[in-house]
Every structure is written in structure tokens, then in C-alpha cells.
Amino acid sequence: MELAGALRQTQALKSQVEAASGVTLSDCYQCGKCSAGCPVAFAMDYTPRQVIRLLQLGLGEEALKSHTPWLCASCQACYTRCPREVNLPRLMEAVRQEARRRGMINEKKVDIFDQAFLSSVERYGRAHEMGLMIQYNLQSGQPFKDALLAPPLLFKGKISPIPAKIKNVAEVKNIFARARAKGGGRH
């Protein structure tokens, strides 16, 4: 009974990730071309090919624990080269979102950066780079990170303490609200 329940769960995870990414996991024949060209592979716990393998084998829980989906830079090299046209960056995106939903934020700093970015866009309609840097530093517990870079950026007029705000912020806020209401967009 328990085994059947677990099996059902792994099946559910598999089809959920497939639906969210539009990827058919069985398309991948494990040639490894994706991992060979992945520029971030050196820093990953599982290679991109292994992440797919885990999902294929019903070991999705393990994939959810991996740091790989969080480190993927979405550079599209793997997808461009894959002989089976497996959209790996989309798959990484789906695995990461599912992990996040379960509270498994495996790369806290990456997540803090993304969330700070999005909240800036939601608030001003644009990304405010300086505010973003400060918010990111404080929340990730490294207040002086890149402190040497900020003064020259300010001096060169490349960042501003004042956020540029668009006129129609309300419209952008609505876009966030409606996208959220639609559940973030499975296919």
C-alpha cells in the first residue's frame, strides 16, 4: 500500500514537471551533450543530464533537492544542441519552481536576488539597480558585498539612489496580480 502511494507520488511529480515545462522526459536518450557544453556544470551537484535521469527514474525528490536547477543560468546552450530538442532550461525552471513551492530553496542567495528584482519591478515598473543591490546585500546577510564597486558606479552616474518609476505603475501591478491569480502559468 505504502509503496503504491509513493509510486503515485513520483508519477504525480513527473507529470507535473512535464506539464509545467512542456518537456516529455522520455525524449531524452541520455547522450550527455547538454552536460558537456553546460558552462555551469563545474559548480553543479548533478549534471543537467543527471537531473533528467533522476526524473525519468522516478527519483524526482532527489532532483528537487539538487542545486542544479538553481544554478542554471538559462543560457540555452543545452537546448540549442540537444539532438532530441529537450527544453532543459524550461525543465530546470519547472523543477526549481516546484522545489520553491515546497519550501526547498536550495540556493538562498539566488532566490533572494530574484525576489528582490521582481519586487522592484512590481513596485516601480522597472528594475532599480542600486536599491536592488542594497536589498540583496542586506537580505543575504552580506552588507558590504561589492562595496568597492558602488562608489565608482555612483560617481560614473551609472546607478542612482532614486528609483526610476514609470507613470503607470498600477498597470504593472495589475499584471503581477493577474499572473499570480492564474497560478503562475502551467502550459
Binding site: 543560468a73 538559462s74 519591478v121 515598473g125
Partner: peptide, 25 residues
């Protein structure tokens, strides 16, 4: 006039529909 952010990588890492809607505006 009054263009808004495209959402960049942060949007499509987090929310697929948002990542399409922000540039679409």
C-alpha cells in the same frame, strides 16, 4: 512611452506567465 521592465531572468525563473506578460505590455 512609459515602457516597463521585461522581467529578465528573474521573472521566467519564477513565473512563466509573468515572464511573457511583462514584455508583452
Amino acid at each position: 512611452p512609459d515602457w516597463s521592465c521585461c522581467g529578465a531572468t528573474a521573472a521566467h525563473n519564477n513565473d512563466h506567465l509573468l515572464s511573457l506578460a511583462l514584455p508583452a505590455r
